[in-house]
Design a protein around this nucleic acid. Structure first.
Lengths: 149, 149
DNA sequence: CTGCGTGCAAAGTATTTGCAAACCG
DNA sequence: CGGTTTGCAAATACTTTGCACGCAG
């Protein structure tokens, strides 16, 4: 019994999140999500536009910016600061479950990391600084298994 | 016996890092570092320019971009993605010592957090994904003690 | 149908470049 | 003095806005 998750299923999961948040299922939105699933790496708005405009016509840049912002607002994408100091996005495979992303500095491949022992830091901040932690994000960078040689 | 660290001393520490990296001690660079020490929060290039151009004249925007990039390259500043999706920088108090930053989402105050139990995640990635972790940065966001009410 | 989505054009910002003049050490 | 550093102007690049038309539900 295979454990593969067909891309169609992954996509469906995202599309149902979209719908549940009151967004319509348009070809553009669908294509953006598909692209992130397929590429499995962080992408800047310009990248997305570049890669999709060949397939989807017409496709305006403002649309891309809008879609990325929407997807990010409902947790399907997460904003990431890329090497070139540009706002980029990574697909977030588990919008509801807490986790982090390991980004390869060479091929920009993204893997998800479940483990997060964050309570300790959170408590430390409450104790030493008196602040309340609301969110945190961990950027893990290195070389993925394919690029490391 | 007071335990205060006068701003002059903090500044000197940074300036000596600058020098040791072959950078010259110019008034502009000095002022940028002083600003970060004084403000104690993340600042975007435009912020820095806005705040310094009144005091230092003349002061071009390109200079600010260049200085921020330099300071970041030697670890005095760290790049941060701010709320408004713009590249900003935070002063890094311990360039040599591993630590993280707790940024208040309201006043953008930055506090440093020493604790980091990152080994576990690092090992997990090596084991489950086969990748090598080279760097990581943790963005901790919330409300500081003054803003939390 | 109805209102959300999108294209397009154009404006608004942010960032980078190239070179000559100024300055640190 | 010499090589850095900086100002300036202008080019580039990135991002947002407004509005009319088009399409999903």
């Amino acid at each position: 019994m295979l454990e593969l998750t067909p891309m169609a299923n992954i996509l469906d999961a995202y599309l149902s999140i979209l719908r549940s948040q009151g967004f319509k299922l348009t070809p553009k939105r669908r294509s953006v999500i598909e692209l992130f699933i397929k590429e499995k790496r962080i992408l800047a708005p310009q990248d997305v536009h570049q890669m999709l405009k060949a397939v989807i016509t017409p496709l305006g840049i403002p649309t891309i910016y809008r879609i990325l912002e929407e997807l990010s607002s409902i947790g399907i994408l997460v904003p990431v600061l890329s090497d070139n100091r540009l706002l980029s996005y990574a697909l977030c495979g588990k919008p509801k479950v807490h986790h982090h992303h390991f980004v390869c500095r060479k091929c920009h491949n993204v893997d998800e990391v479940d483990y997060c022992n964050f309570d300790a830091i959170s408590k430390l901040i409450a104790k030493k600084l008196g602040g309340v932690v609301e969110r945190h994000s961990l950027n893990i960078e290195g070389l993925c298994i394919r690029c490391k040689e």
